[in-house]
């Protein structure tokens, strides 16, 4: 288990020393969300209604943007092979890396969501659900996206490929994630949608970890 925590500490330290990637995601999220009022018109009622969808889609795209950085540096400099030789099973290494990826994307996005929500005149009552659904949903996105990122290692035009593989898998998460905040906006009980999102995330946990480990073994063996 010490290796597990060592990997997490190492990744966090890397990001602390080079916060560029984190800043990239944060500024992408803010910039892209601010495009929507300019494009669809700044009518407050309209913005309040479509805010959950816009925040979710933009969060999804931010995760997508960060995915190529998940495995590619380790693959290119060969440290993934060193990690695979360690005593820790590859599945747990994957879990550690995905956990860090989730921390470094979900937390900034969740912290920025209240700011964006205010800009979009989102009903303040829906805000806790919005943030909660993002924290939960981005975990599923990280897990599923990690498969795509690992499968595209060493491929031509890898970035586009990651998007093409990951987006179809992201769609169910998006649907139920948005419906949580939407139901809260319509003052309907949103527990059901929240439980479904939690179930999807729990389901994505083994699928994402096993699929990524499989794909990494394949990438390294060739």
């Amino acid at each position: 288990m010490t290796i597990f925590w060592a990997i997490i500490r190492h990744e966090l330290k890397l990001t602390a020393r080079q916060p560029g990637d984190l800043l990239l995601i944060v500024s992408f999220f803010l910039l892209t969300t601010s495009l929507f009022p300019l494009a669809v018109g700044a009518e407050p009622n309209l913005l309040a209604r479509i805010a959950p969808g816009i925040i979710w889609v933009t969060a999804l795209l931010s995760v997508l943007l960060s995915l190529p950085r998940l495995w590619e540096p380790d693959y290119n400099d060969g440290s993934i092979e060193i990690l695979m030789l360690s005593a820790l099973p590859l599945e747990l290494i994957v879990l550690a890396k995905v956990l860090v990826h989730w921390l470094l994307t979900a937390l900034p996005l969740a912290l920025l969501t209240p700011l964006v929500a205010v800009m979009f005149q989102l009903d303040i009552q829906a805000l806790p659900l919005m943030v909660g659904s993002l924290l939960l949903g981005v975990a599923a996105l990280s897990l599923l996206g990690s498969i795509g990122a690992a499968l595209a290692l060493g491929a031509r035009s890898g970035t586009v490929l990651v998007a093409l593989i990951s987006l179809p898998l992201f769609i169910p998460i998006l649907i139920f994630g948005v419906s949580i905040a939407d139901m809260a906006l319509m003052s309907l009980p949103s527990e059901g949608a929240f439980l479904i999102l939690a179930a999807l995330t729990l389901f994505a946990l083994p699928v994402g970890i096993l699929g990524t480990a499989w794909a990494l073994r394949l990438a390294v063996s060739n």
Binding site: S157, G158, L164, N222
Partner: peptide
């Protein structure tokens, strides 16, 4: 897309 994305077809 994934099948045809690699130089080595078996890998894809």
């Amino acid at each position: 897309a994934l099948t045809s994305a690699f130089d080595d077809p078996a890998r894809g």
